[in-house]
Write a protein that binds this DNA or RNA. Structure first.
Lengths: 107, 107
DNA sequence: TTAATTCATAGCCCTCTAGTTATGAGTTGT
DNA sequence: ACAACTCATAACTAGAGGGCTATGAATTAA
């Protein structure tokens, strides 16, 4: 849980990798060759990034002849959204506590 | 913009640093000493993390005698939320395009 | 004034990772 | 069968960054 959250943050921290994921969100189902063309790094580098993304659950792959097509798994972003909500919750709850205190002081 | 998004992701990627930010979201306004006590790393390490968080706009500091109090700036998470929305948007838009195509095929 | 406290900075080390080239495994076309 | 292609893996390098200790600057207490 915390582990997967960690992996997610670390995986998305690299700009090249994040760009690949963004591209897959936009354009759907792409081969390694197509992704390499627009990535600005070598094909092995792209493959490595895709491996990391896959282990984080952010992409899926399936073979199609001699090429591999990758697609984004948007649901894998859920822990990220949960985390921001949690932080907002902490924040809000502290605000509520303050309000409670002020109310009690009114009495 | 893209730059600040990058900085935000990289800043939140480190677990120790993220834990410090989480703590500040929960507990509000804390000194470096208090943060160090629960951080599991040395005080200089904590100070360095706080510096990184500050440059990312995620925390604010103000002097209070010889100690420095830090507090979370929850609004700084906005680019993160925007990004996830953007990814979801791409995803949804592709889904809509597919729907459009299917509708046109119906005619 | 002197001593103690609180934090930031400097300097160093060590690990982790993103990049590269080289190559191999699997697939398609001739 | 052989050549061309698509991608993954191996091996290596360089740089970034997170950790530490040591120390200095500023404030408070004795």
């Amino acid at each position: 849980m915390q582990q997967s959250r960690d992996i997610l943050f670390r995986t998305l921290a690299d700009p090249t990798r994040r760009a690949i994921f963004e591209r897959l969100c936009r354009d759907g189902d792409l081969t390694v060759g197509v992704l390499t063309a627009g990535a600005g790094v070598s094909q092995p580098a792209v493959s490595k990034h895709l491996g990391v993304l896959k282990r984080a659950g952010l992409v899926r792959d399936h073979q199609e002849g001699r090429q591999t097509r990758y697609s984004a798994q948007i649901e894998a972003l859920a822990p990220l959204i949960d985390w921001t909500k949690e932080m907002n919750g902490f924040w809000q709850s502290r605000f509520d506590d303050l309000e409670d205190l002020l109310n009690r002081m009114d009495q």
